[in-house]
């Protein structure tokens, strides 16, 4: 930790106001170059407190920067994690209002719903699969509060890992007999294929991201509670969207999700 409590609260207010007012701000490490991961997660926690004080509720957890390519690019070994709030949930097939967002991008991923709590350290893919109630298709709409999506790892963690909106699919699938590693995802924008991936794009297996989340929380004396909805991180690249765009994602064995930006 390099920052005092007052600075952490100020930065949390700064970033949360930027989100609520849908305007981009300079990345916070410009003014606080020594800001470390612990500071960043403390700012994220302070954002949570602000939202909860306003009546919002955490409805899930998310992993970010989960692709090997992105991690190499950012020079990190582990993914980062953020919080999903109630107002971020958009129904499958619904309209998402651009006026509430800054410069959104969409990425397709696999989400897990747990039936048992997961506690690290040492949590692994097998433990995640054993604790999973079902998996479901998901699309995340990320919207960095930073100008031009330019950030470093500490800045993006403080900004709640760019969490903005998410859409959950309609097909709940058992993990038994399902190969999440080779599960294919195909994203179309306005009917044209714009991104494709298989589950392995996320840390070799999407359950790895959930295991790493459990291990991350364990270092803070926490666990992932039973019933938690966890988004494992974008398998596809993030695709920018504008008003008028329709997104449709087909998932192997998990149906499809769609949304329109208005």
């Amino acid at each position: 930790m390099t920052l005092d409590e007052k600075t952490i609260q100020q930065l949390a207010a700064h970033l949360e106001d930027a989100e609520r007012e849908a305007r981009a701000v300079a990345k916070i490490t410009d003014a606080h170059p020594h800001l470390d991961w612990d500071d960043a997660y403390a700012i994220q926690a302070s954002i949570r407190a602000r939202k909860e004080a306003r009546g919002s509720r955490v409805v899930g957890l998310k992993a970010g920067l989960t692709s090997r390519a992105k991690m190499k690019q950012m020079g990190v070994e582990t993914p980062c994690f953020g919080l999903l709030f109630d107002y971020m949930s958009a129904a499958n097939g619904s309209e998402i209002r651009m006026a509430e967002l800054i410069h959104p991008k969409v990425e397709a991923e696999i989400a897990f719903v747990l039936k048992q709590p997961l506690r690290g350290p040492g949590c692994h893919v097998g433990a995640v699969l054993a604790a999973t109630d079902f998996v479901v298709a998901a699309v995340e709409i990320i919207d960095s509060r930073y100008e031009n999506f330019r950030f470093d790892l500490a800045s993006v963690i403080a900004d709640n890992t760019s969490a903005s909106r998410f859409v959950v699919g309609d097909v709940a699938a058992d993990v038994e007999g399902l190969d999440l590693r080779t599960l294919g995802l195909v994203m179309e924008k306005n009917g044209e294929i714009v991104a494709m991936a298989a589950g392995a794009a996320v840390l070799g297996h999407p359950a790895t991201a959930v295991a790493e989340l459990a291990n991350h929380l364990a270092r803070r004396g926490q666990e992932i509670p039973a019933g938690t909805y966890v988004m494992s991180g974008g398998a596809t690249e993030a695709i920018p969207v504008a008003a008028g765009d329709a997104i449709h994602v087909r998932f192997q064995n998990l149906g499809s999700t769609s949304m329109r930006f208005v």
């Binding site: 294919g184 298989a198 589950g199 398998a235």
Partner: peptide
């Protein structure tokens, strides 16, 4: 079997080098 959404994972010398789907 819907080949368009069948995922493809390719490894070179044990390292994942690409993932895609049949729609490619």
């Amino acid at each position: 079997l819907d080949l368009a959404v069948a995922g493809m994972v390719v490894e070179k010398n044990g390292e994942i080098v690409s993932t895609a789907a049949g729609a490619a």
